[in-house]
């Protein structure tokens, strides 16, 4: 009798394993490409951001709305400016509700099934019509999200030439 029960339990295990394998194959992979693209340049370490981004945002939002503190570091606008491209290559607008799930926030939030409330009110993509240099500066002529360098503006050129002449005299 114990042999039979062993066989039964073994069979059960095999059945469970095949079921699990079947389930595993059915889970879609999250689109993590947008999230990974800018991870190294973020204002906080990746692991910290992954866990605590809403804590940072909540603290900052109260400081901004109630006390008028408008620093860039944990501002939602700056998250969006850096992590979200306003349009795809075909020119269509990137929104967090899109089926493609290529919006930075939506790519992960839809995968884990956590509702995104921010963008009911906040803009979910940078606005470049009136502000072409919407991304914050990394150096004098490179901006976040732009691999290619943009035209340096006049002030930067002046500053550069000044520092160069100073270097030459020294």
């Amino acid at each position: 009798m114990p042999l039979l029960s062993h066989i039964k339990s073994l069979l059960g295990l095999v059945l469970l394993a095949t079921l699990l394998v079947g389930c595993d194959a059915g889970v879609p992979e999250p689109n993590l490409a947008p999230a990974k693209a800018k991870a190294a340049q973020c204002v906080e370490p990746t692991a910290d951001m992954r866990k605590n981004h809403m804590v940072y945002l909540d603290v900052h939002r109260d400081k901004t709305v109630i006390e008028g503190i408008r620093t860039n570091k944990h501002s939602l606008n700056e998250c969006i400016n850096c992590h979200v491209v306003p349009t795809r290559e075909d020119g269509s607008a990137v929104h967090y509700t899109d089926e493609k799930k290529d919006h930075f926030c939506a790519s992960c939030h839809t995968y884990v099934g956590v509702k995104l409330d921010c963008f009911q009110c906040h803009a979910d993509r940078p606005q470049i019509v009136e502000n072409i240099n919407y991304q914050h500066k990394l150096s004098s002529n490179t901006y976040h999200l732009s691999a290619q360098s943009v035209q340096p503006d006049m002030n930067d050129l002046l500053w550069l030439s000044q520092s160069q002449t100073q270097g030459a005299t020294q």
Partner: peptide, 16 residues
């Protein structure tokens, strides 16, 4: 109603 593409400096949305 639900709104999209609000001005980044002036959030406005449904139910408020």
């Amino acid at each position: 109603e639900s709104l999209t593409d609000q001005r980044p400096h002036s959030p406005r949305g449904i139910g408020t």
